[in-house]
């Protein structure tokens, strides 16, 4: 059981997060909830990316007094760097999205996305 959790809490868990986020994006009516779901998806993907670079019983890839040489086992640093970038991008998108939501709310006085259909066809 513990083994299962260890193995699947990261892959399975992050995919679950993506799933929840995606479902939220597809089904919520409140625009802010949609953005939160989007953020959830981002988090899920980021977790997955980090998990893909994980090495059992390895250290953070920093050479310091504890691990004075790169001979020690390190986890993969690249996914961490990528995640750093993707977090920032996710933040930027969310912030922009929130600003848009504020503006849309000004116009329609509602956050319900199904009532905001000024553009169709």
């Amino acid at each position: 059981m513990l083994n299962f959790l260890e193995e699947w809490s990261f892959f399975g868990g992050s995919i679950l997060l993506i799933f929840i986020g995606l479902y939220g994006v597809l089904s919520r009516k409140n625009m802010i909830k949609i953005l939160i779901s989007l953020g959830l998806m981002d988090t899920g993907v980021n977790l997955l990316l980090v998990a893909l670079g994980y090495v059992e019983a390895a250290n953070a890839p920093i050479i310091n007094s504890v691990n004075p040489s790169n001979a020690a086992a390190f986890v993969d640093p690249i996914p961490q760097a990528l995640v750093l970038t993707s977090i920032v991008i996710g933040t930027a998108v969310l912030a922009l999205g929130l600003a848009l939501v504020m503006k849309i709310y000004d116009k329609y006085s509602t956050l319900n996305i199904s009532e905001i259909r000024g553009l169709k066809w």
């Binding site: 994006v25 625009m31 993907v45 991008i89 999205g97 848009l100 503006k103 116009k107 000024g118 553009l119």
Partner: peptide
């Protein structure tokens, strides 16, 4: 704003797909 919001949502979902693929 509405148009932009739509693109943002679709783009956001798309970027998740892309990131998964990259991962």
């Amino acid at each position: 704003y509405e148009a932009s919001f739509k693109y943002l949502i679709i783009g956001g979902v798309g970027s998740v797909f892309l990131l998964l693929g990259i991962g």
